[in-house]
Amino acid sequence: MKVALCIDSLLTRDDSIFLLEMALNLFPNSEIYTIAHKQGAILGTIETRPIVSSFLTHKAKNLDVFKKNFWIMPSAVKAMPMHKSIEKVIVFSRGYVHGLNFPIGLQSYLYIVDWNLVDQTHLGWQKVFAPYVNDWREKALTRYKKIAVSSEVLKGELELPNAEVIQPTFRTEEYPFVKDEDHNFLFSHHLIYSHDLSAENFRSIVKVLIAKGETVRVMGPNEHLNAVKKEFPQIDFAGDHCEATSAMYSHQAKAVWDFSRNFFPSKAFGGLCTGRPVVVPDNKINREYLTSGTYFLKNFEEQNINSLYTEIEGSFLTHDRRTLRRLGLKWNERLFKSRMVKFLDKNE
Rank of each mutant, 00 (worst) to 15 (best):
76 A>G: 06
325 R>P: 01
238 A>D: 06
301 E>Q: 15
300 F>H: 12
121 T>R: 09
302 E>G: 03
152 E>P: 00
136 W>N: 08
326 R>H: 13
130 A>D: 06
127 K>C: 00
163 A>W: 07
83 H>W: 05
205 I>N: 05
313 E>H: 07
273 C>P: 00
5 L>K: 00
302 E>V: 09
165 V>G: 01
305 I>M: 03
208 V>Y: 08
166 I>M: 07
205 I>M: 12
42 I>S: 05
72 I>Q: 04
72 I>K: 06
323 T>M: 10
96 Y>S: 03
268 A>H: 04
282 D>Q: 11
161 P>C: 10
201 N>Y: 07
289 Y>H: 09
103 P>E: 15
125 W>V: 04
89 V>D: 01
106 L>D: 11
246 S>R: 12
82 M>E: 10
11 L>T: 05
97 V>W: 00
22 M>L: 15
48 T>W: 05
5 L>C: 07
235 I>A: 02
321 R>H: 06
9 S>N: 12
171 R>H: 14
325 R>A: 05
19 L>N: 08
43 L>N: 11
177 F>G: 01
257 W>Q: 02
216 V>M: 11
128 V>T: 03
65 V>H: 00
335 L>V: 15
41 A>D: 00
260 S>Q: 12
169 T>H: 02
46 I>H: 04
283 N>I: 12
194 S>W: 06
323 T>E: 14
297 L>M: 10
42 I>K: 05
120 Q>G: 07
322 R>G: 03
192 I>R: 02
141 L>M: 13
302 E>I: 10
258 D>F: 04
81 P>R: 15
119 D>G: 04
265 P>Y: 07
112 I>R: 06
108 S>M: 02
